[in-house]
Design a protein around this nucleic acid. Structure first.
Lengths: 220, 220
DNA sequence: TAAAAAATTTAGACTAACCTAAAAATATAT
DNA sequence: ATATATTTTTAGGTTAGTCTAAATTTTTTA
């Protein structure tokens, strides 16, 4: 049986909120993320549970079943592949593609996804550095550091972002920080934890804690 | 205001059934084309009329208003551009793309369409030879002949198909007939109007009236 | 041109996905 | 440990798009 646009969105969001360790997701958290009311979420959870896509006991929160996880990962694969297409082929900025990919991710057709993947050269990461699940549904989150965990003097490689908000991404653009940038932490301000960071051996700039918390990096 | 997936489909189908001269389309014809019942069509027509997208008087059939025409042509533009993408970039066959394009055509975003158009090199025709409306909504149907109107001895260029059914397109593939093929009518059978046609100066084959009726060609 | 047939619309219902308001269960705090 | 606050569910409603069955209008035919 085929899942609806809405069902796919719930599964995707449960996957995201559930995290790597598959922790229970609350009704309210889902209401927040789906921009609906808790009562509507309860309706949908009953439906998803009936279809065997989630584990649901009243008042206890939900987790994905294996079958629900499979669906969620397929949606994520499609979302991230379309984002690569939009940026690499159509020339969109990384701050512009989320909403469009949000629509494209629900286009059904296995063969479309596989042909798109091949056309794009089987990319491993999307324009925000998020890993793209393979055709079999294997999704391995690389264990990056957050910039706040980097010590003064260390040089790291910019690998991804946690916040995908256009305003955040545009801020990075204005700072000259993109995927692959080399960041050297020069100084950390004791008072507000802001950092002085040298970008690609060039200009040094101040990065607020808020920004640091959303930058995923890799040592060396 | 934004039109729904379903509304867009009705407008697109009314456009198709209405033809160049904008003739009235009947409720039953729409029921047939949308795979719904006449009663459902009536409901939708009232809604589209309320939105000013169609001219509708009870029992009299419908035509598009200027505003409805605009929406229909935008959908057609998207459908045909996505078909070009699927065939030219992803390597689908012309017999495989209709259903996928049927989904993609409803993805909203003006800028997506324009970037896609540019990426594809502003194509004028889709993989079935149908003209692609430009960004301003100008759609000029070229006046092709149907193969049945071609006389014995004439050489024509294969420009498009009227039937988009996969089985028909696959039949053409097997016959070696594609867009751009040169067809020379050698003989027309008086009895069943089947034709002997030489393809690209090579093999000559028999083409039934049913097939001839669906081939759009141009004198050269 | 009246009767029969066909096409269309109306009436009343259904499902998916949402809502508000109220009730029930769980969590927190004194 | 009980009262209060928070979270979640239930109950009952709404809208878009569909349905069937019945009523109405238009078209065809005799």
């Amino acid at each position: 049986m085929q899942n609806s646009f809405t069902e796919e969105n719930y599964l995707k969001i449960i996957h995201a909120l559930s995290g790597r360790d598959g922790v229970e997701v609350s009704t309210n958290a889902l209401a927040e993320s789906t921009s609906t009311r808790a009562a509507s979420v309860t309706d949908m959870l009953r439906k998803l549970a009936d279809k065997g896509l989630i584990h649901y006991k009243k008042y206890q929160g939900v987790t994905l079943t294996d079958s629900g996880e499979k669906v969620a990962i397929k949606v994520i694969r499609k979302h991230r592949l379309w984002e690569v297409f939009l940026v690499e082929k159509l020339g969109f900025g990384w701050d512009e593609v989320h909403d469009i990919a949000e629509e494209l991710e629900h286009i059904p057709s296995e063969v479309l996804v596989e042909k798109l993947d091949a056309f794009l050269g089987h990319p491993k990461f999307d324009p925000h550095g998020d890993p793209i699940p393979d055709a079999k549904g294997n999704l391995t989150e690389p264990d990056y550091l957050i910039l706040t965990d980097v010590h003064v003097g260390e040089k790291v490689l910019m690998m991804g972002v946690l916040d995908h908000a256009p305003s955040f991404l545009q801020h990075l653009d204005r700072s000259g920080i993109t995927l692959g940038s080399v960041l050297e932490v020069r100084e950390i301000n004791e008072y507000d934890k802001s950092a002085s960071v040298q970008i690609n051996g060039g200009p040094t700039l101040f990065i607020s804690l808020e920004v640091s918390k959303n930058l995923l990096v890799q040592r060396r």
